[in-house]
Amino acid sequence: MPITITVNSADQTRAVGQALASQLRPGDLVMLSGGLGAGKTTFTQGIGSGLQVKGRVSSPTFIVARVHPSLVGGADLIHADAYRIKDLTDLETLDLDSTLDQAITVIEWGEGKTEQLSADRLEIEIHREHGGVATSSNGVVDLAQMDDGKRRITIRPLGKRWEGTDWETVFSAFEDGQEK
């Protein structure tokens, strides 16, 4: 059964990721989907903060995969981007399956490409409304007006790993777009 959380800012998106981190353990696969600028990396920053990993979590688009070692003796965070992955051969070059059981793996743009890595996974869609008006009074576009920070985060737990997880408690701090 999917869990949907509405947030109103990038900070709240990070906070949801941080709350999720409390449930993650080595071997977990998290697949993130959503359009450009939806907040996939922002969400992963929250996971990284919750896991207390080394390094700034940033978009892995050009690196393809980045390892963030744990600072507290926990599992490493592997943050990957499958946007340029076209087929199984491309996926194999990332060698994610060799570290999957030891690390927490978060893959952006993985839908339709990385599901075979694990039947037990979280599929998370981050949706933002498109639109807004870019205004320019002096030739500079104000992108802040294009994005009000509102997102709808839908988490779909798949597999036995997630059976019995009390999601209501995990995300109890978030209600109707307001962080308690």
Results as ranks from 00 to 15, higher is better:
Thr93Cys: 08
Asp90Val: 00
Thr114Gly: 12
Arg128Gly: 14
His130Cys: 05
Lys113Gly: 00
Gly131Lys: 02
Glu92Val: 05
Ser98Pro: 03
Lys113Val: 01
Ala103Tyr: 02
Leu100Asp: 08
Glu129Met: 07
Ala103Asn: 11
Ser137Trp: 03
Val140Gln: 14
Thr99Ile: 12
Thr99Gln: 13
Ile124Asp: 00
Glu115His: 10
Ile107Asp: 08
Ser137Met: 09
Glu115Tyr: 07
Ile85Leu: 15
Gly132Ile: 02
Asp87Leu: 02
Thr135Met: 11
Ser118Asp: 11
Ala119Lys: 13
Leu88Ile: 09
Trp109Glu: 04
Arg121Thr: 01
Val141Thr: 13
Asp87Met: 03
Thr99Leu: 13
Ala119Val: 11
Ile104Asn: 04
Leu117Ser: 10
Arg128Thr: 14
Arg84Val: 01
Gly132Cys: 03
Asp90Met: 04
Leu91Met: 15
Ala82Gly: 11
Leu91Arg: 01
Thr89Asp: 15
Ile107Glu: 01
Thr99Ser: 12
Thr114Met: 15
Gln116Leu: 13
Ile104Ser: 05
Ile85Glu: 05
Glu92Leu: 09
His127Arg: 12
Ile85Phe: 04
Gly112Ile: 00
Glu123Tyr: 01
Glu123Leu: 09
Asp97Ala: 12
Leu94Gln: 09
Ala82Thr: 01
Ile124Tyr: 02
Leu122Pro: 00
Lys86Gly: 15
Thr135His: 14
Gln116Cys: 10
Tyr83His: 02
Ile107Leu: 07
Arg84Asn: 03
Leu100Ile: 07
Gln102Asn: 13
Thr89Phe: 09
Asp120Glu: 13
Thr93Leu: 15
Asp90Ala: 08
Glu111Phe: 05
Arg128Pro: 02
Arg128Ile: 14
Leu94Trp: 06
Leu117Gln: 07
Gly139Gln: 05
Gly110Thr: 08
His130Lys: 13
Leu88Val: 10
Ala103Asp: 13
Glu108Gly: 04
Thr105Pro: 02
Thr114Ile: 10
Ser137Cys: 10
Ser98Trp: 01
Ile85Ser: 02
Ser137Val: 11
Thr89His: 12
Ile124Glu: 06
Gly110Arg: 01
Lys113Gln: 07
Asp97Val: 05
Ala134Pro: 06
